[in-house]
């Protein structure tokens, strides 16, 4: 069975953003760190809310 790599694109992107956001929020100081953290966790939350509230047709 061959599985296309496109299946992984969105999950991989979300994981990279989450990981980078959490690490930057820890390493950086000030509001930049807060913004990094909020983007890191906010993106998966936003995607989930968007998909669950507006189901694909």
């Amino acid at each position: 069975m061959r599985i296309s790599m496109t299946v992984w694109r969105a999950p991989l992107f979300l994981s990279v953003v989450t990981f980078s956001g959490l690490v930057l929020a820890l390493v950086l100081e000030g509001p930049v760190a807060d913004i990094a953290g909020v983007i890191g966790l906010g993106l998966p939350c936003g995607v989930m809310a968007w998909r669950l509230c507006r189901p694909l047709r």
Binding site: A25, D34, L41, P44
Partner: peptide, 14 residues
């Protein structure tokens, strides 16, 4: 606990 209340809120949602 290192990014303010907004990060904590998102942490709780997850």
């Amino acid at each position: 606990d290192y990014g303010g209340v907004l990060l904590k809120g998102l942490w709780a949602i997850l």
